[in-house]
């Protein structure tokens, strides 16, 4: 097993452990920590798949931004008695069956990258910029419009919430 295969396996294990913790944790603090581990695992997967730009964006946007926002929301929603808020679940065999079936189907039908082959070449930010400002310009502009719409939506939501 090469060093690259070992790194991929470690990143995959971190993704799975973080996802399991996020889905099953009962304490909000553990949920956030597990979500952080999952997001870090995703960033490591991006790096192992040859996309350092995406890995850096994942760390800055998610671990540095969204995770802090989730913590902030938990502090606002928390009970304020010093205990970590509980995140309750209604565990259901039907839901477990749906998730298990989905896992089996996805594991079978999605394209796979065989292990043991040479690590992929790193995709430079210049190549990504070429695609985004070339054939992907419409998607790039739409992403900008979506961000602006999200910003306006948050302003409207927060303003309407404070009027009562």
């Amino acid at each position: 097993m090469s060093a690259h295969d070992l790194a991929v396996a470690s990143a995959a294990a971190l993704v799975l452990a973080g996802a399991a913790g996020t889905a099953l944790a009962r304490s909000a603090t553990r949920l956030v920590l597990s979500l952080g581990a999952f997001l870090l695992g995703v960033a490591l997967c991006f790096l192992a798949l040859g996309s350092p730009l995406l890995a850096a964006a994942q760390v800055f946007v998610y671990i540095g931004g969204v995770l802090v926002l989730v913590l902030f929301a938990l502090m606002v929603v928390g009970r304020g008695d010093g205990e970590s808020p509980r995140v309750e679940s209604r565990h259901d065999p039907g839901a477990a069956l749906v998730a298990l079936g989905l896992f089996v189907v996805l594991a079978i039908v999605t394209p796979k990258r065989p292990s043991g082959i040479a690590p992929p070449e790193m995709v430079s930010p210049l190549a990504v910029a070429d695609v985004l400002l070339g054939s992907g310009i419409v998607a790039f502009e739409l992403a900008g419009v979506l961000l602006l719409a999200a910003l306006l939506a948050v302003l409207v939501i927060v303003k309407s919430g404070g009027e009562r």
Binding site: A19, T22, A99, F103, P114
Partner: peptide, 16 residues
């Protein structure tokens, strides 16, 4: 291969 299985597992756990 291992990444695909991990992604399928994470997606299924998200649905759950």
């Amino acid at each position: 291969m291992i990444l695909t299985v991990a992604c399928a597992g994470a997606f299924a756990l998200g649905v759950y």
